[in-house]
Write a protein that binds this DNA or RNA. Sequence first.
DNA 1: CCGTACATGTAACCCGTTACATGATTAA
DNA 2: TTAATCATGTAACGGGTTACATGTACGG
Lengths: 174, 174
Amino acid sequence: MASKEKLPYIILGLLKEAPLSGYDLKIKFEQEIGEFWQAKTSQIYPSLKTLLEDGAVELSQEIVGARKKKIYHITEKGRTALAKWMLSPIEEFPVQKDEFMLRLYFQKKTELTELRSLIMSELVMHQSKLYHLQERQKILFDTPEKIAEDHGHFLILDYAIKREQFKIDWLNTL
Amino acid sequence: MASKEKLPYIILGLLKEAPLSGYDLKIKFEQEIGEFWQAKTSQIYPSLKTLLEDGAVELSQEIVGARKKKIYHITEKGRTALAKWMLSPIEEFPVQKDEFMLRLYFQKKTELTELRSLIMSELVMHQSKLYHLQERQKILFDTPEKIAEDHGHFLILDYAIKREQFKIDWLNTL
DNA sequence: CCGTACATGTAACCCGTTACATGATTAA
DNA sequence: TTAATCATGTAACGGGTTACATGTACGG
């Protein structure tokens, strides 16, 4: 994708809220912001190393429960870099690739049965995803207080849900 | 992205409709399906070479106007491979990365003014995109006959437009 | 006791982008 | 005549994925 080094800023953005370990970050990428960005440990740990060398984060060895963890904290330098990035213009996104739309385009009007099964499987997939997102929303944000408490998280979940609903609605018009 | 070699199939899908040159394909990627997949000449030409070696496409040197072009035609073998791919399950897409949503998440409720300018610039960007897509739709599909003629193209444009409208609507709720 | 979650990393590979190269044709 | 479009490619780089590697702790 050649996204010109966005990962370090995203890690800083996550660390701004609270100090985290590499593993904690991995979980955040999988769960919290997984709908909009992902990173594996093979990217996270090297990136943390670079951030440490650049002085954007600091490291404290901590014993959590019975386990040892390397907890990374954002530094002033890191905060400055993050703030600067936050204000920089967002580069034109590099196309949201959509294999389903392409197949629809290729199939066109011929072979209606095959098109139908293609559409149905896409529908099922999005409905299942919608369901899981809604369940997460119910569990995480069952009270207005919880929404106010973690408003950013609520927003991305809300958008993810509505995005699924939107695609489902469009598919149903076919 | 590591999308497990989708490009050859997309090229075959485009060639299924009509024989095209590498340059023609480049234009298709830029214009027709650009909202859902893109490929540069640095990918297209090598991919065509491989497809040729695999016997999925054939090549005819043609003189179009005053220019020489290498026109690629899909073969029976190519059609079979394409048909098989079309029926294969669509692999879980590898996250639609969205830098704007992340920044929203990082900013949360603090610093409302900065959030406002972020949201406004995102709105402007999507509104401009929406406008251009709508203009293209007006020009390309001003009559029902044209829609029927190139239904696949109409569908992806329609979806692209509604997708922009959806994001604009959501942004306006913030 | 055994699989899953916790915890931290490295190495190889590959898709896709940026940049580079070259040359003919056409419209301003 | 000169910039834009047409036309076909190659080389280098980089972000991201897959696979590999190792070890601890906990729940059933």
